[in-house]
Design a protein around this nucleic acid. Structure first.
Lengths: 226, 226
DNA sequence: GTATTATTAGAGTATATACTCTAGTGAGTC
DNA sequence: GACTCACTAGAGTATATACTCTAATAATAC
């Protein structure tokens, strides 16, 4: 494997684990047992590394959110979208954590991320549209669909941050993909009122699979969310 | 005004303006034209300053979200809650930006914030309950109400971050309270399906007041969100 | 083989950051 | 006037951070 790719991989790993803010270029080099000079031969600076990682992330999500226009949408499709998006979120979970700082430090990234967001919002909206065409949810006016899509986006992209803050644990390290996917429960909650009678039960059953474990899985809390 | 209070005020101002990450204790001292030594006489460290600011924020929101149990809830109450919460969010807007890092650096803050979140969730849920009692929304099972409250919380606390990333502008400085309050539109979107016929129109009219300005207020974007 | 190019090591640098230490100052008290 | 004590100045420090520079080595081209 090329050094350049190793740097990207190692950076992603460290960023996800400790947060971008807590990972320096020296850490990355040390982690790979290469010199800082070597790292800077391959990347002009830290922002460049992050930007390249974003491009990967973007490509992955764009791939996941590709919507087949030649056939109707099924419940399985919807499940796949949700599962995939949360998988992507998990793999690049450092990204949304320090998003604002990252965008402030790199104008390219700001612009690209903005476009990326708009593409995602359009995809979510299109998914709703096709779910309606398939008779899974009731059709909605475009206005409402846009606002709903935006809410879905907000829930999806910030579910992880919420989980991390809700955790009483000292380090926010202990967070699993399974927990993350409880975000699907939250997203499906948004859809409930719009489900058609024909699909209502099936979607509710699907949602049930992602229901968060009850409090008590952790010894520390009296609160609703441990 | 006492130096200690001036430090808190100045810190909050700088944090909100530039982000906590970009503000050092030296900046704060310089901003007040006092010495770093002076600052450290009043606060043990940066975390302490942030913690005190959080206590203020917490107090403010707790005050806003106090729910009168001796009378029915009105639409005006709901409007007040929404307006107030977004006002609070605005005044302490630095806080949610670097939340994860802040919680990782201060265990006191982590614990307190967790409790704070749970209190807020409980309040939101109680508001829904009372809105149902008042015949404004249809009553819901507790399960659903909790999940909905959590979605409301996610939308509220992350609306600002979304706006900042959606802005194409170089610096995310240009963000107004008015724009922020478009988050109310998003929150009310969540309530739409649950509105009773008696109140539907009135709430929809209220929501309309917060509708985001159409794209075109900014020259840079082709996307849905500027 | 020689020239060229890609890659790497590793020491080094300028700057920043959080924080400390010492030496006070000024307002009140007895 | 001596004393206290909350408060302040400002130089200083240890460490970290992003990044640079030089020189060397490995790979490839001719």
């Amino acid at each position: 494997m090329k050094t350049r790719d190793k740097i990207l991989l190692s950076s992603l790993e460290l960023f996800n684990e400790r947060g971008e803010r807590n990972v320096t270029t020296n850490h990355i080099a040390a982690n790979l047992a290469i010199s800082p000079g070597n790292l800077y031969y391959h990347f002009r600076n830290k922002s460049d590394i992050i930007y390249e990682i974003f491009l990967e992330y973007e490509k992955l999500v764009d791939f996941y959110l590709d919507i087949p226009e030649d056939r109707a949408m099924t419940l399985d499709d919807m499940t796949f979208y949700l599962e995939s998006v949360f998988d992507g979120l998990w793999s690049y979970r450092f990204f949304h954590r320090d998003l604002e700082y990252l965008l402030d430090s790199d104008q390219r990234l700001r612009q690209d991320y903005r476009d990326f967001t708009n593409r995602c919002l359009a995809s979510i909206s299109r998914i709703f549209e096709k779910l309606a065409e398939a008779g899974i949810i009731e059709p909605q006016e475009e206005d409402l669909r846009s606002a709903m899509s935006l809410n879905v986006w907000l829930v999806i992209t910030n579910w992880m941050a919420f989980l991390k803050t809700a955790h009483a644990a000292e380090e926010s390290a202990c967070l699993t993909l399974t927990e993350l996917k409880q975000g699907i429960y939250q997203v499906l909650t948004l859809e409930i009122p719009y489900l058609t009678p024909a699909y209502r039960e099936r979607v509710m059953a699907l949602r049930e699979k992602y229901r968060p474990a009850l409090p008590g899985n952790d010894s520390s809390g009296a609160g609703a969310y441990t």
